[in-house]
Design a protein around this nucleic acid. Structure first.
Lengths: 151, 151
DNA sequence: TCATTTTGTTTTGAAGATCAAAGTATTTCA
DNA sequence: TGAAATACTTTGATCTTCAAAACAAAATGA
């Protein structure tokens, strides 16, 4: 049965919400002061740092799909809470590099483990043959939504 | 290749965002004053109305996963913009029934057509054999996330 | 070189979405 | 009838977001 079209987006939203609220309560013990969105920002900052990719403010904002101004205010809160730091870029002193603190790395590690666990559990519930199909569907989805296939 | 676990949720977020921003711009010509969230509220109200399911304020809020207070304020704006109406329930005068106006039905129709089109287009890009697998994955996902399979 | 433009970020002002808790109106039930 | 429960709204606060203005530094070009 083909999924009921009009409810697909709500279905995705529902899954996302379950995921993030589950994660918030999971992390609650150690990091009581992080919203799902803040965790996502930390994730992107850590990923940029780990892979040596551009970690200036504008690049992080672009990766998150938000404006620079929005990121500035979120980062200020996360700096306040000691998950991130701003570092002046010596090569271009207009720019600021956003870096995780030790606490930021720790939160990101828990976050990553959480998703590995969830995804592993979910893949285990699928009929074995469907796991590959699932991966293919994700790849096609990525292509579909990257090209402007949306009218 | 199994999807990179930590980025699955961000991938879903990305798709959702592309969908809703595409929809916002698509609907912009006719309904300039509706956010994606407001459209979603209208969708739920229309669905309740169409299927004769409980359409009192509390039921709509529960379906959306938000508190009654949040819904009250959103509905007030949508009443102001003439997409919804509040009707006093004669059987229980504490309750309010949330109903779409003609304009609300029209917006919902466009919304539904949009998702039918998108979903149809996407399914057409998939290798034929993967369409069924995709449907199964969605069903399993629903079951997985409905049971508290999340630790 | 130095004035102009461009670039990277922050600030500002405003709006939307959200919640918890307090408040109001109505119903239920003991 | 009076107390408790229910359905909703209001209030006060926070978070997320954007666009536009402001600021600082770099790049350009005459």
């Amino acid at each position: 049965m083909v999924p009921k079209t009009q409810s697909l987006s709500r279905f995705l939203l529902y899954i996302l919400e379950r995921l993030s609220s589950a994660e918030e309560s999971r992390l609650a013990a150690e990091f009581t002061d992080l919203s799902a969105r803040e965790l996502q920002i930390i994730e992107v900052v850590c990923a940029a740092q780990a892979s040596g990719v551009d970690n200036r403010s504008s690049a992080i904002a672009a990766a998150l799909g938000i404006t620079a101004g929005t990121l500035t205010s979120s980062v200020s809160q996360l700096v306040e809470k000691e998950y991130l730091t701003r570092q002046l870029d010596e090569d271009d002193r207009r720019a600021r590099r956003i870096c995780p603190t030790e606490k930021g790395w720790q939160a990101n590690t828990l976050h990553t483990l959480f998703y590995q666990e969830i995804t592993g559990n979910f893949l285990n519930t699928l009929p074995p043959g469907d796991v590959d199909a699932f991966s293919r569907v994700l790849e096609y989805a990525e292509i579909f939504f990257r090209k402007k296939s949306i009218p």
